[in-house]
Design a protein around this nucleic acid. Sequence first.
DNA 1: CTTCGTGCAAAGCGTTTGCAATAAA
DNA 2: TTTATTGCAAACGCTTTGCACGAAG
Lengths: 150, 150
Amino acid sequence: MPIMKMKIIFIMNHSNSWLTRLSSNGYHLTSARKAIVDIFANCNKVLTPTELFFQARQINPTIGLVTVYRTIEKLEELGLVQRVFFEEGGFGYYPRNGAHEHLLICKDCHRVEEFSGDDLGSLMQRVENQSGFEIRDHLLQFTGLCSKCR
Amino acid sequence: MPIMKMKIIFIMNHSNSWLTRLSSNGYHLTSARKAIVDIFANCNKVLTPTELFFQARQINPTIGLVTVYRTIEKLEELGLVQRVFFEEGGFGYYPRNGAHEHLLICKDCHRVEEFSGDDLGSLMQRVENQSGFEIRDHLLQFTGLCSKCR
DNA sequence: CTTCGTGCAAAGCGTTTGCAATAAA
DNA sequence: TTTATTGCAAACGCTTTGCACGAAG
């Protein structure tokens, strides 16, 4: 009988690196935080605090909404999630996977895709020169209908 | 005695055209609305509903915050003001002077300048092709420090 | 055992709604 | 006179705070 060859595939998500980041910044790794990090690790949608709360309760039924808010606060502070604005007002959060990316958000199903706005640099430069402003942050979001919802 | 030559300069703002727009859409021209339109007509800052409220009370001391909200609602519906998002959350409103413009906002004094993001069209096209999305809206804002505050 | 995190309840804040009185058309 | 609009008070929803208990390091 031949030796079976197996491919062990590690599905990498950022869950572990996020926990490391929290830990190395002096934050305790509690089950509430692990639940929330886990949700973000497997998600390509913008989540509001309340949505996050309900999903987290399925993992850890005793978690409170307040803890969700406080955890988001830390994740945002560490640059692990980014705030996304909804046209109607209000906002949600999206996990950042490294570099700052611009987002394309489906109005219908809230699915998110990322794109790089590579020509933004020259525009910013031009605007800085013309206005005398020193640009610190930029916000670029597209919203529309994704291929499934259109 | 020579005939004196006078130059009469009309300082144009959009106040009158805004009132016409309101009126022709079946809205009454009340003193509350006139006050708010007047504030926007002479402003190059993003104003929150509360800021608008306090400024409006200096013109019309009996105006209520609720009226401010309801007036903003109409102005937004008619496309006369646009909502601007603050990084910290929350939002304000800025008068639109015609075409959709992108905004450059001073973090410090909230002064606003406008610029046109002329190369956004090709970026949107590219992103649509790559993603299969149908882009409906876009949001582009720069924030930083203006020439006076930097 | 020390420090940080939790959940609860309550407060806070900005926004919206119901309603009777009032002003515009 | 009809219809839209106002201001008030109260409701609302989301977010934050204070605090005593509990968990992580």
